[in-house]
């Protein structure tokens, strides 16, 4: 039973990290209908920025609490800046281009960013400093859940709550929902659509950066190529839940995380990804719009 609980909790941890990245995909898709292939790289850049900042500060002897805060803020700021810049360069000029053009430019951006980090930094795996200490009060349950799992679960739950409040009640959140529903209509009622799209990219990138920081300190190492597989998994999660739907992205991520965790625990860790993708294919066959997605009916 302990083993089951352990797998369940590690699946939840994994799923909540996917959720942080998947939200960026789903929000962007909901607003401009684009698969932002460079989103995984934004997450990677978030992890790298926090690595650079945290290591630098720890070398200069700052206390752990300060390091965590500064690294988190720096990762969020720079990732958002990258997300914004990628949108301005690679997607904004292509708003009215053929449907595949932004996809190709996203793939190009993804290759570009990966190689930029590879050249400017290194291709080696780098040890990520341990930002989350082992808490003493976690001792009795340490065999089923680690301290970093707990921190990840609590942090993501808080972020989800904040995001829900932001989308539901603030001006920019309402503008985002309006733009997602009907871009032309949103323009007509005086919403600055370009600004809303940029805000979506910035918000999504900041979430991905937090995800990058958390997972890097959880796993303990990073590399320039981590963005690709994380991006694909998160995108899978977003599609699983119904792309464009925010609760769907969270649900899809949790389902994906749990599936992977149980597959690894009870079957074989080699086939973890096969299970993830098979689950996706199965769900899409029986419910093509994802778990919580709206059915895509088209009227003529």
């Amino acid at each position: 039973m302990d083993y089951f609980i352990e797998l369940f909790l590690s699946g939840l941890t994994r799923g909540s990290i996917y959720a942080l990245i998947a939200l960026g995909y789903t929000m962007v898709y909901g607003i401009i209908g684009l698969i932002n292939f460079a989103h995984g790289e934004i997450y990677m850049i978030g992890a790298f920025t926090s690595f650079i900042v945290a290591t630098t500060l720890s070398i200069y002897g700052f206390p752990l609490a300060a390091i965590v805060v500064v690294a988190g803020v720096a990762a969020a700021i720079w990732s958002s800046a990258y997300g914004y810049t990628v949108e301005q360069i690679a997607y904004k000029p292509l708003r009215h281009a053929p449907r595949l053009a932004p996809l190709i430019s996203a793939i190009g951006m993804s290759i570009l960013l990966q190689n930029y980090v590879l050249l400017a930094q290194t291709s080696d795996f780098l040890p990520f400093p341990k930002l989350i200490p082992e808490f003493a009060f976690m001792e009795p349950v340490a065999h089923v859940i680690g301290s970093s799992d707990l921190v990840i679960l609590i942090t993501t739950a808080m972020i989800m709550l904040a995001l829900t409040l932001l989308i539901k009640f603030t001006r920019i959140g309402k503008a985002m929902r309006a733009t997602a529903q009907d871009r032309t209509m949103a323009l007509l009622v005086g919403i600055n659509v370009d600004r809303v799209i940029s805000a979506t990219f910035i918000l999504g990138s900041a979430l991905a950066a937090i995800g990058g920081l958390l997972i890097a300190s959880h796993i303990g190492q990073i590399n320039f190529a981590i963005g690709f597989i994380a991006g694909i998994k998160a995108f899978t999660a977003a599609v699983l839940g119904g792309i464009g739907s925010i609760p769907g992205a969270v649900l899809g991520s949790l389902v994906l995380g749990l599936t992977e965790s149980f597959a690894t625990g009870y079957v074989s860790s080699d086939y973890e990804d096969v299970f993830a993708f098979s689950l996706l294919v199965l769900i899409l066959i029986f419910k093509p719009s994802g778990l919580l997605g709206k059915a895509d009916t088209k009227k003529v």
Partner: peptide, 19 residues
């Protein structure tokens, strides 16, 4: 730099000549 250039060329092509 070739993969860097490859990525940049893909982006530039799409911006300047998407068809």
């Amino acid at each position: 730099y070739r993969m860097l250039a490859f990525g940049a060329i893909l982006v530039a092509m799409m911006i300047f000549k998407p068809e």
